[in-house]
Design a protein around this nucleic acid. Structure first.
Lengths: 342, 342
DNA sequence: CTGAAAGCGCTAACAC
DNA sequence: GTGTTAGCGCTTTCAG
């Protein structure tokens, strides 16, 4: 903030020998001010280099025109796409976007959410961290009736609008596809089961197996945090089984990639020896060799939808508080080399 | 913002039959308040579910504890890494981060910057858009003495702190490397020359050629906006030359990738027939086949540095207004398959 | 069509 | 160690 005091509406008022309220009205295009004075005031404002002080206006109006967004990691393609979508819609509607990342750290997430509340954001869009298992910080928003929209990693226990992709359906499709390619012992590298997206993906996988008369072998389901290192560990373990899998469905692309690189280094052929699928359609999955089959998640569109829902709630506030809904965005199976046995 | 009026320090004051200023002081840990009353006040605050209203505090303190960041596209690995670095440092220092993307659109960039000013951000971090050729919107910040830090796509005409990578050095290294691999007709797909990063990359390329006694052939330098489509067009044109190149240095990885895919589809061998290098080390460049040699840009670290410089300026404000500096982050050549002829 | 006055919630002289 | 008071810059009744 600058020290030389900025021109205010009072400076404009003094310049023109009128009152500050008239200036305020003119600058807000209040029709009660004549066109002539309005023009005069705007000219003076320009001349003085006046810029409205949004903070003062926010305080007075009890509205910050700001929305907060919290993601685990900004620097991840899916999340940055969502943020981009949010910004796109928010900008057009005249809202600022404050971003924060939790780094999957519960304590940071909680601090951030409280700080956003103190900043009086008009609404919050969040995808919770992997560690998050209690929700007092989010219930705060509910209790105060501040609009809240979850996306991707949502919280069942809280009643709010949610945007998810069809994790179950996507996982089902992937698994069915692997079965169609002739795979019979399909492993699953699963994510932390406190996150619904990962339980859903597992459920889709299991259901597809069952529907096709294949048994669910618990030794073929491994749980971890889906990092590249976790993928390495998991594939080692799977290969060491007496009866190793002929296909692996990884709950994200990062893990799928690390598995693929491991197999490539070991001279194990993908997809001939082991077929492989990921989830999310990270940009690299298309270009690696062999390219990785995966499920496309429309990140940008999810961000747009989340922002639309949130702003809708903000601006309808008070009137018809409508029921909260969960929007399921369609997923799309993208078949690439890593699973194409023909 | 919620309608049920939030508890304020006055509510706490009334509850305890003390004055609001005492409450304010206690909550800010002012040592002039006795430990006993401080505890009492904090207990009452908790009980009432009090959350400080940052907007009011900001207005009073003439400080928003917010920094703005403007990038061309949030949804690009390099930029989201920078944002992540900024958030990392800003959070620890108690600042919020408002993000916006210009979409390389000058008019949007200008609107955003003015809006951030109206929001009284304490400082601004920006990488300008491809179209940006006039700087009135940025001079506003200079004129008002609001700290401003440029990164990556900086503006020579404005005196401010800048963080860049060593574009010249990186391009020189890449080109030298291609020469070392035996290439003699090295083409360059260059970016828009109003952006310094691209003139520097071109300059590094030319200098390396000259140093090695190779002539600079203007027909081998193509200018465009470095999209995937631009890359396709450029490689077509280069291949149609009477004397086509034996190596191509692309000013970014996106273009390098599209060139590589084109060559792969045409059955032209990389690196044997045409060696290829990019710039930026986008995640995909490592995993494509053949993997793409490139220059690593430390995005996260640049973001951290930018935030540190900015916050340093904000908090030293008024005192010793130090000279503005340009920080050049080292680049690193990453040699991969696309240029390894051995 | 315009002005006067109050107040959004917080902080910081200045008093005592 | 605590209270009183004024004011950050803006908007909005209410009055005329």
């Amino acid at each position: 903030m600058n020290k030389k005091t900025e021109p205010t509406i009072h400076d404009i008022a003094r310049e023109l020998n009128i009152s500050a309220s008239t200036v305020s009205r003119a600058l807000n295009n209040n029709p009660r001010i004549s066109q002539k004075t309005r023009d005069k005031i705007k000219a003076a404002a320009d001349k003085l280099g006046y810029r409205p002080n949004t903070i003062a206006s926010n305080l007075r109006n009890q509205k910050s025109n700001t929305i907060g967004i919290v993601v685990p990691m900004i620097n991840r393609h899916f999340f940055s796409s969502v943020i981009s979508g949010v910004e796109d819609v928010a900008f057009k509607a005249g809202y600022n976007v404050i971003i924060s990342q939790s780094n999957d750290n519960f304590s940071k997430e909680s601090t951030i959410v409280h700080s956003l509340f103190s900043n009086r954001v008009d609404g919050l869009i969040i995808s919770i961290g992997m560690q998050t298992q209690t929700f007092a910080h989010l219930e705060l928003f509910i209790r105060k009736h501040i609009p809240l929209v979850f996306f991707d990693r949502v919280v069942d226990e809280i009643d709010a609008d949610k945007i998810v992709v069809d994790d179950f359906g996507g996982a089902f499709q992937v698994t069915q596809h692997l079965i169609d390619q002739g795979c019979r012992r399909i492993a699953h590298i699963a994510g932390p089961q406190n996150l619904k997206i990962y339980t859903e993906r597992k459920r889709g996988y299991q259901q597809a197996l069952s529907k096709n008369g294949l048994s669910v072998d618990q030794t073929l389901i491994l749980y971890n945090n889906l990092t590249a290192e976790d993928g390495q560990k998991a594939i080692r373990q799977l290969l060491s089984l007496p009866n190793p899998p002929d296909a692996i469905f990884c709950a994200n692309d990062t893990t799928a990639l690390s598995v693929m690189i491991f197999l490539r280094d070991k001279g194990i052929k993908v997809p001939e020896d082991v077929a492989l699928c990921g989830f999310s359609n990270e940009p690299f999955s298309e270009f690696v060799s062999p390219s990785i089959s995966t499920i496309k998640q429309p990140g940008f569109e999810m961000g747009q939808k989340a922002a639309e829902l949130l702003i809708d709630q903000i601006e309808k506030k008070g009137k018809t508080e409508r029921k909260h809904q969960t929007f399921v965005m369609p997923t799309e199976l993208i078949v690439r080399q890593s699973s194409s046995r023909k």
